Computed example of a mutant assay.
Amino acid sequence: MANRMLVPEAKNGLNKFKEEVAREMGVQFSDYNGNLTSRECGSVGGEMVKKMVEQYESKL
């Protein structure tokens, strides 16, 4: 099964959101993130999900 994006237009928005969350957390994201730990990358992803869930719940 090929890996494909369902909504390619969302990629830029998610990248901006990721950079914003990383900046808030003090994690230095760049074009190359091989110097970051799995914990740092995972914490940014987890915080992104947390913020998205909070935003969704506030709209209910």
Rank of each mutant, 00 (worst) to 15 (best):
N3Q: 10
N3C: 12
M5K: 13
M5H: 13
L6I: 10
V7T: 14
P8L: 05
E9C: 07
N12H: 09
N12D: 15
N15T: 14
K16V: 15
K16N: 10
K16I: 14
E19L: 08
E20F: 08
V21H: 04
V21E: 03
A22V: 01
A22H: 01
A22P: 02
M25A: 02
M25F: 06
S30P: 00
S30A: 12
D31L: 06
Y32M: 11
N33Y: 05
G34Q: 09
N35F: 04
L36T: 05
L36D: 01
S38C: 06
S38V: 14
G42Y: 00
S43E: 06
V44C: 00
V44I: 10
V44T: 00
V44N: 00
G46D: 03
G46P: 07
G46H: 00
E47P: 04
E47F: 00
M48L: 09
M48H: 01
M48C: 05
V49L: 12
V49S: 06
V49M: 11
K50L: 06
K50C: 02
K51L: 11
K51H: 03
M52D: 12
M52K: 15
V53M: 03
S58H: 04
K59W: 09
K59G: 11
L60T: 11
L60E: 07
L60P: 02
